[in-house]
Nucleic acid binder design. Structure first.
Length: 626
RNA sequence: GCCUCGGUGGCCUAGCCCGGUAGGGCAUCACCUUGGUAAGGUGGUGGUCGCGGGUUCAAAUCCCGCCCGAGGCUCCA
């Protein structure tokens, strides 16, 4: 029964690999020079030879790999002896023989074949490509009878543990997902389906894409890489106001705003560890003497900063905040979609260092509340998003009441994922998920308890007794990506409209809050005076001075989602009352200018303000789209 | 990366199956119109039909190759 033993190969389609033999590890090691080697556009085969392998297996392995290379349209391989793939290794002499046989077979098959020396401890750097076939692990069995090929997602699968899915209710009761009655919780059902079975209901284009273009908020930029967007003035205003709101919220909460670099040395020792877990996702920049990667979160910069910080337990919890413009993730081409997912995106990222679990829990609750406040400001209420909460079973058993208290705060049943063991660097994590018109779920706010990175980055504080301690680290994005917030607002508006409602952005985010329309050219001057009076109160007001019909101008104001529209003619000048067309209430109400101003100021109270991002007169505005 | 669909003035789109000198709408420009709450009228400017090759007397249309985009798959600590 030799069937269980085999040749194990981790096959990685790589942009490049660099390796440097450091020292001999076994006596059977081959002779080689201690010089660095770099190979580009290559399929790297990390190979371990197990106990009962014979040389037939080598030929068979190469045959399988040959098929694969055809699919990848690559013809260059590097055979890289890598013992760590197995705990049942063959003797070095046998292994070397098998490896040499592989090399020979590959050359015979016409592959451009490289091989790293056997028996050496080697330092290496690898950049793996981002497509699904890039990472494969294969096991070639020694037993000829057993021809099954096992192909699996190598890196992820190793870390992925069994998890089970439940619905947890505010009263603390827990039901397996399949037993829960979703009648009253359709979006939660969609989230569960999306997370567990990954089914899709719809095949159409996400509606927010058309809206983001038509409203001249934001658009694709063909001159860049996919997933890098251009923001028109109105969109820039909306985005910038949301950024401001999130930042204000975090600063009020006590966070210290910092700024850190967008790119980091690929070979920095503290980072390489972390990076190893996300090998395929970076933009790589070549500088004169080093390779840099663009950050995909604010963690690096903040952790490197905190590593160098002198911290006492008296200063905990310590909150550090950064708005990353941008974070970069080189998502696979097919994964990018409008404002749902980009390759360059803006993400607020707030870390809190806590001394112990007790402090952590208190902090976690505070942040949980802040997150729903932020979403509420965007016009996203509890009914508009769903909570997912994930943890290791062990953590849950010890902290059950804490988990339930979060669900109670949320006030609705939540999706719960329980892992048999701690699978990641966090022990507890939650997200607010928005479900869009295609029934796809996207995470907005999120927070997690990280128990590893303080060690990885050696971040410490001094406790009461003068000892260095590693804190717990909370990672929170209070809003999620800002782009994604806009996506959620637009998708929600579309849904509202489909259900017979009026689509609009919250008043404090509306690029135009009030539009004044003179009934004819004769009243432009009077209209201007009114505009100026409104503007003085920090209200974004504009003037449609184009020589179009009144109907047409009203129509366009509606299409621009302007919430308050005022028409100015002789009657208004005589009476002093303004006919205010309220988009949301869908009626025209007569009021004094002061009344309107007060009403608006009250509605946008406490929210950030920025002035009109375009010329005040519509006749002076270019058309950015269409 | 794979699959599917697509690429025609700034935007939307007809024409493609069945080859015969590219049509409409919006926007833009000019003129008329100066209005009372969701599209006033007339006229004009603007296109080597994504790129390259092939078939043909003739290609937006048929064939081959490539590029770009979108969606799906997959992925999403």
């Amino acid at each position: 029964m030799g069937g269980l033993n085999s040749l194990r190969i981790l096959q990685l389609h790589s942009d490049y690999i660099e390796y440097l033999p450091v020292q001999k590890e076994v006596s059977a090691a081959e002779e080689t020079e201690k010089t660095a080697r770099r190979i580009e556009e290559v399929v790297v085969l990390f190979t371990a030879v197990e106990e009962e392998d014979n040389e037939v297996v080598a030929t068979r392995a190469i045959k399988e790999i040959e098929n694969f290379l055809e699919k990848l349209k690559v013809n260059r391989i590097l055979i890289y002896p890598y013992a760590h793939l197995s705990n049942n290794l063959a003797k070095p002499a046998v292994a070397l023989k098998v490896i040499r046989r592989m090399e020979e077979a590959a050359k015979t098959a016409g592959m451009e074949t490289f091989r790293a020396p056997f028996g050496w401890n080697k330092k290496f750097t690898i950049s793996i490509k981002g497509h699904p076939l890039a990472e494969q692990s294969r096991t070639v069995l020694a037993d000829v009878e057993n021809e099954e090929e096992k192909v699996s997602e190598a890196l992820q699968a190793e870390a992925k543990l069994e998890s089970s899915w439940y619905i947890i209710q505010p009263d603390g009761s827990v039901v397996p997902v399949e037993k829960f009655d979703f009648t009253e919780h359709k979006d939660l059902e969609r989230l569960a389906k999306y997370e567990i079975s990954k089914t899709r209901a719809s095949q159409e284009k996400p509606p927010h894409i058309k809206l983001m273009q038509r409203l001249e908020l934001v658009d694709y930029e063909p001159g860049s890489d996919p997933g890098n967007l251009r923001w028109y003035p109105k969109g820039r205003l909306v985005k910038s106001l949301i950024e401001q709101l999130v930042t204000d919220t975090m600063v009020n909460y006590g966070a210290m705003e910092v700024e850190t670099p967008v790119m980091y040395d690929l070979n920095h020792p503290s980072l390489s560890d972390y990076l190893d877990r996300f090998p395929a996702r970076q933009y790589i920049i070549k500088s004169e003497d080093k390779d840099l990667f663009l950050r995909f979160a604010a963690c690096f910069g903040q952790f490197l900063m905190l590593h160098d910080t002198q911290l006492s337990y008296r200063q905990l919890p310590l909150r550090v905040y950064e708005l990353t413009r941008y974070s970069f993730r080189r998502e696979k081409s097919g994964e990018i979609a409008g404002l749902r997912r980009q390759r360059a995106f803006t993400m607020p990222d707030c870390h809190a260092l806590c001394a112990d679990l007790r402090q952590t829990k208190r902090e976690f609750i505070t942040r949980f509340k802040l997150c729903s406040e932020v979403l509420d400001s965007l016009g996203l209420e509890k009914k508009d998003y769903e909570l997912a909460i994930r943890f290791a079973e062990d953590f849950y058993n010890k902290n059950r009441n804490f988990v339930i208290s979060l669900v109670r705060l949320f006030g609705k049943p939540a999706l719960m994922e329980m892992f048999e063991e701690k699978a990641f660097y966090w022990v507890l994590k939650w997200e607010f998920n928005f479900i869009d018109n295609q029934e796809k779920a996207s995470a907005l706010s999120t927070d997690q308890i990280d128990v590893e990175n303080a060690y990885r980055y050696d971040i410490t504080y001094t406790d009461e007794t003068g000892q260095k301690q590693h804190p717990l680290i909370l990672h929170c994005s209070p809003s999620g990506g800002i782009e994604r917030c806009v996506y959620a607002m637009l998708e929600k508006s579309y849904r509202d409209q489909k259900e017979g409602g009026v689509p609009f952005l919250p008043l404090w985010l509306s690029p135009t809050q009030v539009r004044v329309i003179p009934v004819s050219d004769k009243f432009t001057k009077d209209a201007e005076n009114i505009v100026e009076e409104i503007r003085r109160h920090e209200i974004r007001v504009d003037l449609d001075d184009r020589s179009l019909t009144l109907q047409k101008k009203v129509r366009e104001a509606e299409r621009d989602w302007v919430i308050y529209v005022i028409v100015i003619g002789q009657k208004e000048i005589d009476s002093g009352f303004l006919p205010v067309r309220d988009r949301v209430a869908r009626k025209i109400k007569k009021m004094k200018l002061r009344e309107l101003v007060d009403k608006i100021l009250k509605e946008v109270e406490d929210k950030p303000f920025k002035p009109l991002p375009l010329p005040q007169k519509l006749s002076q505005r270019p058309q950015f789209y269409g």
